[in-house]
Simulated scan of single mutants.
Amino acid sequence: MSIWSGLLLFFLTVAGMEVFAYVMHRWVMHGPGWFLHESHHRPRTGRFELNDLYGAIFAIPSIVLIYGGVQGGWWEGYAWIGAGIAAYGAIYFGFHDIIVHERVRTRYLPKSSYMKRIVQAHRLHHVVNTKEGTVSFGFLVAPKPEDLKAELKRRGRAGVRAPAGADRTFAEK
């Protein structure tokens, strides 16, 4: 396989992972996998949360594909696909865990309109702490924050958590 074919496969995989991440987040994590993901919509009490297991689970196909494509005698394209999955995971960790949730402290402040948009969309996702009623499940592609706010308002703010220090009935209003 040429380097150009491999790179194309790599970048197509990174792009395809956005679709996979949306589907998994919307219908698995906010569905039957809520028992793990719920910890991510609650204040973290330690360094880790149950939701972190998803990172380990999603790393397995990447590791298997890279190994198979490099050492296992499989089609070498599998290594490029595995590398694309790993790259998406690294992008996700950098954006989601470092920039948005500040699990690793930095002095980074989003300046571009794109970065501001996806950070705000993810934060609007987290104003809802229930399995249902959440908006914005994507990661690299996100709706406009104004549209997300309008959708939350249309839903009657169901599941929206109260601001820190506010009466808990706020979320029910």
Rank of each mutant, 00 (worst) to 15 (best):
Y54W: 07
L109H: 14
A56T: 11
E76N: 15
L53D: 00
A86F: 07
F95K: 12
G156H: 13
P43W: 07
Q120I: 03
F48T: 01
R123K: 11
R117F: 00
A166G: 06
E151V: 02
L7A: 12
A83M: 01
F48C: 00
S112R: 06
R168I: 10
R168A: 13
G31D: 04
V128E: 05
V141M: 09
G55Y: 08
L50M: 06
A166Q: 08
T45A: 08
F139D: 09
R47Q: 13
R103G: 10
G6A: 10
D52V: 00
G68L: 03
A15M: 13
G156E: 09
T106H: 13
R103Y: 14
G165E: 02
L12P: 04
A15C: 14
A150I: 00
A166D: 11
P143H: 02
R103I: 03
Y78R: 11
H126P: 06
G138Y: 06
A90F: 15
V135W: 08
L36E: 00
A158N: 07
G69K: 01
M17S: 10
W34C: 04
E172K: 14
S136Q: 10
H30Y: 00
S39N: 11
R42H: 14
Q71P: 02
G16P: 09
V127D: 01
G16E: 03
L36H: 06
S2I: 06
T13E: 00
H122W: 02
R161L: 09
G55K: 01
L65R: 00
G82F: 03
L53S: 05
I57A: 14
V64W: 07
F35P: 07
V100K: 09
L65G: 01
I81N: 04
E146S: 11
A121L: 00
G159F: 08
A21H: 10
A162Q: 07
G156C: 13
K149R: 08
R47D: 05
K173H: 13
E49V: 09
P163I: 05
A59N: 07
G72A: 02
A83Q: 00
V14Q: 04
A15Y: 15
Q120D: 14
V119G: 06
A56V: 15
F48S: 00
R105S: 14
G69Y: 01
G33I: 01
F137C: 12
G77W: 04
M24G: 10
H126R: 02
I66D: 02
A162R: 09
W74Y: 12
A87C: 15
W27R: 12
R42A: 12
F93L: 14
H37C: 11
G68Q: 04
L8A: 13
G94S: 08
W27S: 12
G138A: 06
Y54C: 01
A150C: 11
A59D: 05
Y114R: 12
V104F: 13
G68F: 04
Y22D: 10
V70H: 04
F48R: 08
G73W: 06
I99W: 13
R107N: 12
R168Q: 13
R161I: 09
M17N: 10
